[in-house]
Each structure stands twice: as structure tokens, then as C-alpha cells.
Design a protein around this nucleic acid. Sequence first.
DNA 1: GCTTGCAGCCTCTAGACAGCATGTC
DNA 2: CTAGAGGCTGCAAGC
Length: 704
Amino acid sequence: MEFTPIDKLNLDERIIKILKKKGIEKLNPVQTDAVNSGLLEGKRLLVTSPTGSGKTLIAELGIISHLLSDGGKAVYITPLKALTAEKYNELKDWEELGFKVGMTSGDYDSDDAWLKNYDIIVSTYEKIDSLWRHNPSWLSEVDYFVLDEFHYLNDEERGPVVESVAIRAKRKNLLALSATISNYEKIANWLNAIPVTTNWRPVPLREGVIVEGKKSYQVIFPNETIEIKGNDPIIAYTLYVLEHGGQVLVFRNSRKMAESTAKKISSSMGLLSLPDKELLKVGEEIKNVEDAGSDEKEELYELVVRGVAFHHAGLSKGLREIIERAFRERKIKVIVATPTLAAGVNLPARAVIIGDFHRYNRKILGYQEEISIMEYKQMAGRAGRPGFDKEGEAVIVVRNKKEAEKVFKKYILSPPEPIESRLGNESAFYSFLLGIISSEKKISEDDLEDYAMDTLLDKDVAEKYVKRGITWLRDNEFIAGDDELVLTKFGKRVADLYINPFTAKVFKDYLTKSDKSCNIAYLHLVAYTPDGPTVSVTRSELEELVDEAPCPLFIEEPEDEDEFYNYVSALKVAMIINDWIEEVDEDVILSRYGIGSGDLRSIIDTMDWLTYSGYNVAKVLDLKEHYDVLYTLNLRVKDGVKEELLDLVKIQGVGRKRARILYNHGIKKPEDVVMNVDKVKSLLGQKIGEKIAKEAARLIAGNA
DNA sequence: GCTTGCAGCCTCTAGACAGCATGTC
DNA sequence: CTAGAGGCTGCAAGC
């Protein structure tokens, strides 16, 4: 455990200058280890260490010393868009050396985004995987890959993409960063990298359990037991930490419980929760957020002015950001969250309370599984704010002494489980093959098999999947050719759209054999694909929904119970989106379907992408009868409008609400806006009216 | 006859990635 | 296959 002053390292002067500017005088033990293992000489490393141990700086040093000595380009890959933005901002500091930093992810591209102009590009795994399929020329200039949060390899859904990207990065140079994993030697070996592993944390972490004792609760740490009074372990411990001046992050396993725990805490806080000026300001911000539903704003407001908040993916992005910032600024004292906050941007607290170590598993009815050690470590790792807390505390709530012992042994004393390949299923593996063929343009079966042998799968499993995959892709007309495999036009389109081949097959099979139908039928088909959004359907909705389908659907009602549920869930998505494009008020949609604004947003985004994809698949298959419907549908889904507003929403700054106002007052096209600027101003306000008139003029000029 | 209390049954359950077009010597 | 909270119903005791 040693710290190394940066002057003692063999660092380029320019690097030292910037480090000092960032306020970094010495490297911490993890960073020192990485440097001693050859980081600056371009050695391939797999660094595994706890969250918050300063891995980002390792990546920065790796990238910069690589660019300084070898030129070329570097890519920094993260699993989350939020992390991509965060790393982008940190890497910006290095632009002083003359390197340009850009970023690209699904919803954001660097403003003057032509990526070939950048030296360092920050992105997500999926986006890089997708880019590889298009194979832009600049991508071949990239010879240094940082694979951040590499333990996502173990994630059932996202893992296959991480692995695909790693397989290609392996053929160049890479630096992989991961949370602590137990089989790091095996993974390092696979990556052909040197393992660097430590448990060092900037703020020490104390892990324990909370058990109900005779008259009070006991918080048991390895060498100390604290007695606290109260009726509820979470509330009691939260109050205890608050009284000692710390902030608390509580994790619950459902949104409902996150909300009710937040309420209970706030009503037990007494004098600890007097609203102050700062909190009232945060409250005002919440009231004024534009992207949220009114119910969720109201509920959150009541809590936030008392210094408490709940946080989950049902909340709008704007709302979540306000809460996170206010917590970081130490205004909000307690956040009760679902696992959203376990990964993602750094949001530490003095104490973390893990309220549940079980989680409902939707695949197996009535079965509640224990969360993985890795997940526990991610949550516990949020404890301890550098600079504020001497020590972080993480406690798990258990019911009795027997459970306490078990939990202590499993979560606190054991290393996280090993990570392993998630490519071992048809859907993931066939996508992987499709992606490789797409970027290679043409490839022999032997070479394709070489790629498969590069996966983390056992050789015989990989071999089985290549053989089956090639046959399947050929049978379904994604690929053609004998000596050299190439993508068909259909296959290439599917690869570029980045949809799952099974999604494409659903489009192809049903659209080919069916006649035109109504919007709901198309939306249902789109939602029913494996890439479609999933929503939960309550029992009462289930009966209603089936009767409600207004026209013949493309998919017949499945016999199988699970499939039937998917069928109904897709129908619910279709109804939601149908309301959206019929301009039903957002608050009405939210309460009608029991979803949050964050849910609605993500359903819309996914359906936008998939209606676009459906249109393109229909187009490439020349299914004339269907593609015009899907085309219009996609435009309407994007903005949530009826067809008559499509001209207006093309104007930058005009969404479904403004477009409707304008239209109802006789302004129906961009030209009308330009001709009636005064009227537009009186309808939408001076400032906005003016801006929109300008945009409308620009739009017309652009079209001409 | 109406209210209140409570046992027991029923219902429900986390998160978040991807297309496109974009600019210009 | 290893759950638990909250809502709802219906029955019985209490007034």
C-alpha cells in the first residue's frame, strides 16, 4: 500500500503539468500498482479494484501515454450513457495537450460530431459494437481500448456485447477495468493481459448486519456492536447516522418500498428534518421540472423539503438529476433507492443500508432469489465520501441471528462470484456472428470460427453455436455464400439497425404473410419482438386488454402461459403508444397505465427505434403494403402527435404541445409560422415565438 | 344497526443499451 | 425451487 509522488514517476512533463492542475500530487496504491505493471509502457492490463479507487485516472494515464508515444486513437468504453458523459468531462482536461475528445452514445453525439476528427472517443459498449458493424474508416485507426466496468461481462443481457467488443479489442491493445472479481487470473489470461488487483479503497469500509435484539436493534460489525432503539431497523439506523452528521443511502428491492420507506423515514425524523431555505429551493426546482408527471413531483416535493427523497427508474430523468445533485451538495440527507443507484455515476454516502438481500425473479414465479455478492459489493461500495467521511459503513438488514450469520459469511466475508461468458445462447451468439460478418464484409467459415474460439465460452460450446448459427442465419436469409460468407441486403440492414436477428425474423415472418392492419396491430407486433419494451400487466388489466384490441393483430393469441403474458404485455405497450400518438395528455397516460414518466420515456425511445427498424426491414424486403404505415407511425411515435402535426414538429423547438396550439389556431405548416410571426408570438410567448419563427425559416431554407 | 379491528387472502414486484443524420477540403 | 409489503374482504366483537 504505497502512494507515489507523481514527480518520482517516469512521466512526460506535459502529463505531470496537467495532473498538478487537476490537483493530483501523488498516485494512490492502485494507480501505483498499475504503473509498476507497465501501464505507461503500453502493457495490457486488467485492473480489478473496488469502486471509487481511482481507476479512471489509470485509464487517463494509459490513454495519454499511448497517444503520446504511438499516436493513433483511443476509445474509452463504459456500459452506461451517464458514465460516458462523466468520463468525457474528465478526459476533456487532456485537450490541453492537443488531443481532441469526443463522445458518442445513443442519445448524444459530440456537437460537431465527425468522429474521425477526435483522438479520444468515449462511448458505450453497444454503440461501439454498432459502429464496428458500419466499420467507419476512423475505427481502424483506434488501437487502444479502455474497457471500463468490465464486470458487466457477467450481465445476462448486456454481457454478450461486452464480450463481443472485448474480442475485437483483444486484437488491438486494451486496458480493462473492473470491480473486484474472483477469477481475475482467468479473465486476464483470456484478455492476454497482466492482472493488477487490490482491495484498496480511498475511504475504508466497514460492513455489518442489523438484527433485531431483545429491546433494540444490534448493528454488528466485525469488531464492534452498536445498540440502537426503534421500531424499524432501517429507520433506526438512518436516524443514528443522521444524528452523527452523515448522509444515508438506503436500497430497497421495489419502487413501492423505496417510496414508502422514504415516507416513513421522513415522518420519523422530527427535528432532523426541518425544511431549510436550501431544501425549499430544491423543492421549487422539483415543482418546475418539465419532463415529470405531476403526481410524482408532488410526492417527491413533500419529502425533499424535509431532506429525504426516493429514487428509481420510474422517475423522469430531470427529477433524478435534481435529487442526485442535491444529495451530492449535501442538502438532501437520505435517498431511498432501487438498484438504479448501485451502478452508474458516483454518489457516495456515509452509510449504506441494504434493506433487502432478496429479489423477486420474474422468470420463476414465486421464487425470490438472493442478490449476487457482486451486486451487494456495488451497493456497499457507495459508502464513504472521500474528504467527508473517515470511514464508510454498509449494513444489511436481516431478520434473525441465524440469517445474520449466513449473510455475514456470504456477503461480507466471501469474494464476489466469478464472471463468465453470457454468449451461450442462440439470441446472443447469433447477434455476435451477425456483427462479425457485418464488419468483416466477407469471411470464411474458418475465420468466423476463429472469432468464436476467441470467446470465453468452452471450445466445444462455441463450436456448436457457430455451426448452428451459420445454418440458422443462412436458412433465414441473413447470410449467403459458400466459401465466403456475406450478408444479404436484409442481413446487412438488420446488422446496421442493431436489432436482434430474432426481432428481424418476427418482422419478416409476420409482415410477409399478413395484410395491412391498423396502427395497434403494428405497434403490437413491434412491441412483441425480443427487443420490444416490457411492461408489467396487472391481473385486472389482463382481462381488459384482451377484449380491447380494436382490429386483427398480426400475432395470434399464444396458448403457452408465458408467451400469452408477453403477448398481453406487448398489447399494453401498443395501447400506451397509441395513446401517445393520439395526443392523450401525459399525466392521463401515466395514471391510466400505472407507469412513471421515466417508464413512458423509455418505452417511447425503444418504440421509436423499433418502428424505424420495422419500416426499414419492410422496405428492404420490399413489402410495399406495410412500409408506408410503419414510416408514418415512426414519425408519430418520435413526437407523440397525430399525423396532421407532422409538418410542425419538424421545427426545432416545437413538440406535441406547441404544435397542437399552433395547429388549432390555423398555423399548420412551417410556412404558416413564418407568415404569421406575430400570431405565433402571441400564442407561445415573445421569446419562444421568435425562436420558433427563426427555426421555421431555417427549416424552409434547408428544404429548398 | 353501524363501526372498528384484525386475520387471512390476493396482488404485485429493478434497470437501461441500440438507429438516423449531422460536416468539409 | 427460498419473500414480503400493502390493499382488500369479510367476519366478529364492541357500542
